[in-house]
Design a protein around this nucleic acid. Structure first.
Lengths: 229, 229
DNA sequence: CGCTAATGTGACAACTTCGTGACAATAACG
DNA sequence: CGTTATTGTCACGAAGTTGTCACATTAGCG
């Protein structure tokens, strides 16, 4: 699973720092901005997965930024959590009306922050359309998360599963090891290219004699999933 | 169409009276209770179609009753309208979070009351007839709120019950811990993902050797309820 | 045929994920 | 108001998974 990016917007550096530490411990990527202007630009450029926004800031207030982002279709989907001081609590409603997905009252524990952040991200993540693919008696069902060959269940590990799913939905095309790492492992991982070979082998082993011919080696390039030849 | 039954819960008899008159003129059946205790019992016994609940009451507050009702699967579907005094308006959010479907601020006109009541009833899902599910001798009956295995009653805790009900009505599908938290615990709860594991374990324990194979671990993903394999 | 680069393969240590029992906090109940 | 359930979290060990390496095997080429 790729790490989610969170943009923290607060004019107080100490608070940003505190939050950043908590989030990094929980394996989130962290971006920071200290005013609404910069924040807006970063939202557009860096496309964070979530916005942690302080309510009160000099100049354009957090609430104003939230409202603006929600109004723009390009950024309307971005989940926003508002940070409010206790005395401002009455404004909760206004905040939620402006489009915030949650609000947290200062002071808060890092635990609470991370928990609510998870919950918001969870709700925001769309579930892609997942259809069963079947090729030559080899069947992969994303819904039940199962793989079977001629009706018999196969025990496929997580990485092999993703690899197979990618192949089955991208047949008849050769991919380099590098491309496979990007697509199956996810962009920002450093893994040796030869590791792909090992997983290909593991996958072939699981598929057994009946189906391993579907995964073909393209010498000097990489691999291909194909029913032909 | 049969008349809908509305349960009014308020400690002030005059207010109940006023509401009762308005509702009866609009052809509703009316029940009354002056405290949360009685109200809870009446909800269970008389199964009203809607609950009109005063926020502030001596003893268990309305909000507390609402929360309790929403937490229990047997009564979770009951639409609730909260009555709040103007000065308590800040608590709106709290009320909605507790599961209320609407709130009305005192003083209100009988007209308004009936209008919103209609609206809520309209929205309220006909609670798709709750049917007993039986799989492999494992039976869950939503009406009596009971679980049995091969005829023998099982002692299932509230959370385990909801989890099992969800699984039995959503077989053959792998769910992540996140999705289970959303579906079984409800969206706005901040709970660690691993907590799901613990409840899965508790559920498996209750199901015993005969049926625990129905709950399968999908490594790297989550869990699945299935009769196969 | 012999050489070389590319790929296949088995082993393995580091790392994740999962199952499990215990525990404290909270809620339900009489 | 004390007693009993229920719940969420944690810590630990077991089980499964991953990336890497060393070495074996193969394909391509002159």
């Amino acid at each position: 699973m790729t790490a989610k990016t969170v943009l923290i917007v607060d004019d107080e550096a100490s608070i940003r720092e505190m939050i950043a530490v908590a989030l990094e411990m929980a394996d989130y990527r962290v971006l920071e901005a200290d005013n609404a202007q910069t924040a807006h630009a970063m939202v557009v450029d860096d496309q964070p997965d979530l916005l942690l926004l302080d309510w009160m800031m000099p100049g354009t207030s957090g609430i104003e930024l939230a409202r603006r982002l929600k109004r723009d279709t390009a950024t309307a989907e971005l989940p926003i959590i508002l940070l409010t001081a206790k005395s401002e609590e009455d404004n909760k409603i206004q905040g939620l009306e402006a489009g915030a997905d949650d609000y947290i009252t200062k002071p808060f524990s890092p635990r609470e922050l991370v928990a609510r952040l998870k919950a918001v991200l969870r709700r925001a993540t769309p579930t892609g359309v997942e259809e069963t693919v079947e090729i030559d008696g080899l069947r992969l069902d994303p819904v039940s998360h199962r793989v079977s060959a001629n009706g018999e269940a196969l025990d496929v590990g997580p990485t092999e599963y993703r690899l197979l799913q990618f192949f089955m939905t991208h047949q008849e095309r050769a991919y380099t090891r590098s491309q496979l790492l990007d697509q199956v492992w996810g962009g920002n991982v450093y893994v040796e290219e030869r590791t792909v070979d090992v997983h290909i082998r593991r996958l072939r082993k699981v598929l057994g004699d009946d189906h391993q011919h579907l995964i073909q080696t393209v010498r000097g390039t990489g691999y291909r999933f194909s029913t032909k030849e």
